[in-house]
Write a protein that binds this DNA or RNA. Structure first.
Lengths: 230, 230
DNA sequence: ACTTATAATATTGTCAGACCAATTTTGTTG
DNA sequence: CAACAAAATTGGTCTGACAATATTATAAGT
């Protein structure tokens, strides 16, 4: 497919990846040392090191000074790092990002409701109650709002979707939007959460998505105003 | 946030990234040479090289043998590479991936229809016509089907969404699904495309999404059968 | 026997210098 | 001016050395 320019580092990198897969080496396992790799691959330590650094930077393994090399956990942190640089360097159109986020949230509702299995609404209601208390007591509002939406995504019982959702949320969080909301607006937000849960309970996708759309409106309004003033 | 263990390579990597951003160096621009970097950063060539390789592996720059170092285009190919390894090593639940894909496609329709601006339906109809001909003449069916869905995503006029969609599609393409469809099924697929375009034309989101759901049914059926036989 | 402190060893981090390979630049020639 | 050749530039790989850190082995004390 892609025409890879052959270099010893590239070859070494591929062979190491292959070795990890074929030998079914698990995350957190200790990997071979640099010396063992130079012996096996018959290349210089320079080449081995550059290959290892490449693999480290894409989150496949971690190198611990003096401690050896280990297989990294299959989190997608390296993707987040890439997106962060992408954001810092090229920026992103905030409106586009919010639209994307909205699509994900609407999709979350669809996946939940289309699933047959009933979800744990009690926990979601608990989170929303914490959210309510945070509003009243001037607590960490954002924390519980995020927890609510994250838990919704988890309830899709779709790890793939959840992972992509997390990546987009991470990307989203790079945008610092100071959406100062009054208490009454926040309470309405709390109420929308509640209504959404009811809609989920009755498998009413249309209503749930409608509420979610409303839920996103303040932020769209905010962006619209920002773009106007500029 | 993250506690970075200080190493010269890490420092060099960060400083190079910073340099790129501060000096507003554009993609495809020629960057400093290894020598210039060793002079500026006052570290050995080894450290500079390892930093450069790190940055290359996350798609920030490319190193051309003998030709110098260049700023990479802001594509997200490195993310695709990471996902590919992730897929090869840990696999993915196909059903989850298809669900995710479906959410994206449904979101595509929403974004298009919620936009005020009219889209270029002529081009989409042309692609679908090519799709039709491919079916009749036993041509490259998949190609035109993919082109159709990609063009739809483009019409959202949301680069961020499009990019994420492409990443998911790329991830999706790793799964080799041999969905052997008969000519009549393919023709129905063609017809669904056509109906979708009509729904878009009349801003009928509900119908458009309904057709898209139907459009995905054969593949879900296929997966369901596969899971049953196992 | 068990813990703790210390020494020895292993492993990664950085450096310097050399030579090779690919590319670019320069110079020469027609 | 164009085409080719030579030289210079630039990245690719190797070797050997020493430093910094982590791990392991050893010895001492209870």
């Amino acid at each position: 497919m892609t025409i890879e320019k052959t270099s010893l580092v590239n070859i070494a990198t591929e062979r190491i990846k292959q070795y990890i897969q074929e030998n079914n080496i698990k995350p957190n396992d200790k990997f071979l040392t640099e010396k063992e790799l130079t012996d096996r691959l018959q290349v210089s330590r320079t080449v081995v090191r550059e290959a290892l650094i490449t693999l480290q930077s894409v989150g496949i393994l971690t190198i611990k000074t003096g401690g050896g090399i280990y297989i990294e956990n299959p989190n997608l942190n390296s993707i987040k790092t890439i997106l962060k640089h992408h954001y810092d360097t090229y920026g992103v159109k905030i409106k586009e990002l919010i639209e994307t986020r909205k699509i994900i949230e609407l999709g979350t509702l669809r996946l939940i409701i289309e699933k047959e299995k009933k979800i744990d609404l009690t926990y979601l209601r608990q989170i929303n109650k914490d959210y309510y208390n945070a509003i009243i007591n001037k607590g960490d509002i954002k924390k519980y709002d995020q927890a609510f939406h994250r838990q919704l995504m988890k309830e899709t019982a779709n790890d793939t979707f959840y992972t992509f959702g997390e990546i987009i949320k991470e990307y989203f969080s790079l945008v610092k939007i100071d959406l100062v909301q009054q208490e009454d607006e926040l309470l309405q937000s709390y109420q929308e959460h509640e209504t959404m849960l009811e809609a989920i309970e009755t498998n009413d996708l249309t209503t749930a998505q409608q509420i979610m759309t409303v839920h996103f409106e303040p932020i769209f309004t905010f962006i619209f105003q920002m773009e106007e003033t500029v």
